[in-house]
Amino acid sequence: MSVNLTKGQKISLDKEAGATLTHVAMGLGWDAVKSKGFLGFGTKSAEIDLDASCVLFDEANKPVDVIWFRQLKSRDGSIMHSGDNRTGAGDGDDEQISVNLQQVPANVKSIVFTVNSFTGQSFTQVQNAYCRLLNANNGKEVARFDLSVQGAHSAQIMAKLYRHNGEWKMHAIGENGTGRTFDDLLPQIAQHL
Rank of each mutant, 00 (worst) to 15 (best):
D84N: 02
F123I: 02
V142M: 02
L72V: 02
T178I: 09
V33R: 14
I67L: 10
Y162H: 14
A143T: 04
G92A: 09
A17K: 00
Y162D: 04
T119G: 11
G83Y: 00
K34T: 15
L185Y: 09
G42K: 10
T178E: 13
A25W: 08
D49L: 11
T87L: 01
L133F: 10
L134E: 06
V55L: 05
S148Q: 05
L39K: 09
T22Q: 12
L161I: 14
K34F: 14
I189N: 08
V64L: 05
N100W: 06
V24Q: 01
S12D: 15
G177N: 09
L13R: 01
G92C: 09
K34Q: 15
R70V: 06
E16I: 13
H171R: 13
W30P: 01
N61G: 04
K73T: 13
A143V: 01
G166C: 06
R163K: 15
A89Y: 12
E47M: 05
K15W: 03
F118I: 07
E141Q: 15
T114G: 02
F38L: 07
C54S: 09
E16P: 00
V112D: 07
D31A: 11
L39E: 08
D183K: 14
A60C: 05
D184T: 12
E175A: 12
H171A: 12
T114E: 05
T20H: 13
G27A: 15
E47I: 12
T43V: 11
V142H: 02
G29I: 09
L21T: 13
H153Y: 15
D84V: 00
R144Y: 07
N137S: 03
L56Q: 06
F118E: 11
Q156G: 05
N116D: 08
A152I: 06
N128H: 13
D14F: 04
A136P: 02
V99K: 00
D58C: 02
G151H: 03
P105N: 09
G83M: 01
G120Y: 10
E95T: 12
N4K: 11
K7L: 13
W68N: 11
G177S: 14
H192Q: 14
D94C: 14
K160A: 10
T43Y: 15
F118R: 08
N107I: 07
A152Q: 04
A19T: 15
Q127M: 15
H153N: 15
S12F: 10
A159K: 01
G88R: 04
V24L: 13
V64W: 09
S117W: 11
D58A: 03
H192M: 08
Y162N: 03
L72I: 04
I189A: 11
Q102P: 00
G42Y: 15
A19G: 11
Q150C: 08
V142A: 01
L185K: 03
L21C: 13
V24G: 02
H164C: 11
H153K: 07
K62V: 09
V24P: 05
H23V: 07
G177A: 15
C54T: 12
C131F: 14
Q71W: 00
